[in-house]
Amino acid sequence: MLEVTALNTFYGGAHILRDVTLAVGPHEVLALLGRNGAGKSTTMRSVMGLVRPRSGRVTFAGADMTGAAPYKACRAGLGYVPEDRRVFRELTVAENLEVGRREARPDAPSWSVDQLFGLFPNLAERRGTAAGRLSGGEQQMLTIARTLMGNPRLILLDEPSEGISPLIVEQMAQVIGEMKSRGLAVMVSEQNLHFARLVADRAVIIEKGEVRFEGTFAALDAAPEIARETLAL
């Protein structure tokens, strides 16, 4: 459903992504693994149109999305959850969700505020609270719920487990499972192989802007040196 072909992205003079190629199928959860600075976030930002790749192609559901404005990527059915919990701090939880709200689409599961409050009970209790006063984990939940309000077909989750408590990480894994069971495709970036294994069908490992591995976790286990070289600290 999402195909990224030979993507090259630069920040100023720095060459960040080098010929990155990957694909996410319908109803699939793909883990994008790599260390800090490997290019995971840049890959997602390039797909979303938040940075313009210098060369390469991004196609989504058959349409060319390369370099399209972020709002167009969103309207085409791509949902994006940034890594640093960018909630609108001065808006309430309910208002944050309202910003993300878009019309239901026939080809994707649709989410209502009530469903999302069911999925994230903590948020339901705090719907009138300014988002800036939520805990880190709650803010992370809110960014996911906010993106789901746009009824995406594929969701890009940038390091959802980073810097939150183990209890919430577990809840996060359940949420990703729920998304998959409702027919959503997911690309989730991770540094943690265990978490990735828990939620994803397949893995892509990226190192220094280049794809080093692409395949199932069974294939990854068969070649343990890859994970050791590219993921271990």
Binding site: A69, Y71, A73, C74, R86, F88, L91, E95, G100, G150
Partner: peptide
Amino acid sequence: RAATQDREMVGALGVN
């Protein structure tokens, strides 16, 4: 009000 705080994010949420 959301755009006042984070314009880029508002765009990524589908707002022109």
